[in-house]
């Protein structure tokens, strides 16, 4: 087995171990002093809402930013393309026309 393949296999094994640890970790999270001091429904809801707010806000902002940048890039592309076409049309109109075939001597 080549060295690169061995490194790849080791990295994969490490990834599997990390994922397995993450899957088994919630037991460790029970140690959180804030999360487990209360057991009411309102408190659980507040925790859920807080988690959702803090997780979704950055994703929403990044998504909005990417959407805006794509839209703006398309607008600039369209404006550039229109200007290029206009320039080409103006150049074609200014170019002297080719002599007519019929006007040539036989």
């Amino acid at each position: 087995m080549s060295r690169a393949a061995r490194v790849r296999r080791l990295a994969l094994a490490a990834l599997v171990l990390v994922l397995a640890a993450a899957g088994l970790a919630p037991g460790v999270a029970d140690a959180c002093a804030v999360c487990l001091t209360q057991d009411s429904k309102a408190f659980t809801w507040a925790l859920l809402k807080g988690t959702a707010l803090l997780s979704l806000t950055p994703l929403a902002v990044i998504g909005l930013g990417v959407w805006y940048l794509r839209r703006r890039a398309r607008q600039l592309d369209a404006a550039e393309e229109a200007a290029r076409r206009e320039r080409e049309a103006a150049e074609a109109a200014a170019r002297p026309s080719a002599p007519h075939r019929a006007a040539r001597p036989a």
Partner: peptide, 24 residues
Amino acid sequence: LLFVFTELMLFAGLISAFTISRSS
């Protein structure tokens, strides 16, 4: 925009902490 993004997260953290504290 970058500054506002960081400040938005600051407010999100404060509001989240307030909500949890109030519910308890």
